[in-house]
Nucleic acid binder design. Structure first.
Lengths: 110, 110
DNA sequence: TTATTATATTGCAATATTACGATGAAAGGA
DNA sequence: TCCTTTCATCGTAATATTGCAATATAATAA
């Protein structure tokens, strides 16, 4: 059906999967890497940097903004995007807790 | 079009997004959490644990197996799944490198 | 005002994902 | 052998995602 049954999962499980879903497209990974690399806000040069059409980039930026990982400042006709460092940090905490689950070596049945 | 243009992205970007995509569904997060919690192999009790039908669980397990995060041992009529600890560790390294990008506070334009 | 520039939104086509009933395959027990 | 249990696969319906052309919007420049 294409419709995820979110109601049967915990808040934490839904949060983790929502974050991961945003990272689940290479264009969004590339956008974030570029934002980190230039370590400053960017405007529309993402369209040139990544090889996708302007509406497609705009759509990916919307996803990133929706989950709070980036924010934008209007400066004239262009918009300056950058990482929302506080939200990025919070996201990292949530995701790291999931990734760092105990890897007990005592049990090795497989 | 629903078709991701993987060819225009780097190997690393595609790897990160492939991993994240697998985590992008709460059922798969729940399966992994359960596998960590019982810290031992499990069989088909995931169907009872999570509220999804058996074919659906089987499909999610397939995704997790495809990317190497879990492995299964046949024991009689049942199959015993568990985390592939080595692959989990490698995955964590890749993802952590992405999450731990430098958060330089010197630049605060937004 | 009109034109230009930068970004967002709309609408749509192609493809992917999610979920499950029905069925298949493989092993063990009666 | 036949039945049961356990899991995988197939087929299909409903929904989501991706990508882009066309268009809208908003700010500035001429």
């Amino acid at each position: 059906m294409g419709l995820t049954k979110t109601e049967i999962f915990t808040l934490e499980q839904n949060q983790i999967s929502s974050i991961a879903k945003v990272f689940g497209h290479p264009a969004r990974v590339a956008i974030l890497q570029h934002l980190f690399k230039i370590d400053s806000c960017i405007c529309g040069d993402l369209v040139g940097e990544i090889g996708l059409a302007q509406p497609t980039i705009s759509q990916h930026l919307k996803e990133l903004k929706k989950i709070g990982l980036i924010k934008g400042n209007i400066t004239g006709t262009s918009i300056c995007y950058c990482i929302d460092k506080e939200n990025w940090s919070n996201m990292k905490t949530t995701l790291t807790a999931f990734l760092d689950q105990d890897l007990d070596d005592s049990n090795t049945c497989c």
